[in-house]
């Protein structure tokens, strides 16, 4: 009976471990996926600072004095998040900040849409005014919601493989 109990406990443990591995695997994929998204978004915006500033200006949300700091700074915020997620340092915090930034982006796109302004979101470079037939607000918002889900997963289950967090043994 004792051995039976032990076997059952062992089975449960193995089951738990297997489920843990699946969660960790998904988390790892989400972490690296989000890192690639931020790296791509950031790199696409740093080559032409004027274009990045204009992409921000086109939202007509910020006063002119803040257009340049945001246009110049946001790509580097994205790159910093990419770096942190890539090495897996402070995964939960980085994911939470990613989610916050994505919520800001989604809100901004929705606001532009609601005000009837025709722009490219400038999410991956480009940006600025486009003709009304070339707007893609719904796709842009759905895409960002997809990224938001990755960030949400990592906030809930931040443990991943090949991460600095793992090396430092903190969870």
């Amino acid at each position: 009976m004792a051995t039976d109990q032990m076997a059952r406990a062992g089975g449960k443990q193995m089951e738990r471990r297997r489920r843990g591995a699946i969660v960790t695997g998904i988390g790892t994929a989400a972490r690296l996926g989000l890192a690639v998204v931020w790296a791509w978004a950031g790199l696409a915006k740093i080559s032409d600072p004027e274009a990045a500033a204009q992409a921000v200006r086109a939202y007509r949300l910020l006063p002119e004095a803040l257009v340049k700091p945001f246009g110049y700074g946001l790509p580097f915020l994205e790159l910093a998040l990419a770096l942190l997620l890539l090495v897996g340092l402070g995964t939960r915090v980085a994911a939470a900040l990613s989610g916050l930034l994505l919520l800001v982006y989604i809100g901004s796109i929705a606001s532009v849409w609601a005000r009837g302004i025709s722009i490219d979101c400038g999410c991956f470079g480009g940006g600025g005014a486009v003709s009304a037939s070339h707007t893609a607000y719904l796709q842009e918002i759905f895409r960002d919601i997809g990224f938001l889900l990755l960030a949400g997963w990592l906030v809930r289950w931040p443990r991943t493989w090949a991460s600095l967090d793992g090396l430092l043994a903190t969870d």
Binding site: I46, Y72, G73, P75, F76, L77, L79, A80, L81, L83, L84, L89, G90, V93, A94, L97
Partner: peptide, 12 residues
């Protein structure tokens, strides 16, 4: 994490 972000943005 916050330091990395602040440094990156300021330098950027």
């Amino acid at each position: 994490v916050l330091a990395v972000i602040v440094v990156a943005v300021v330098i950027g």
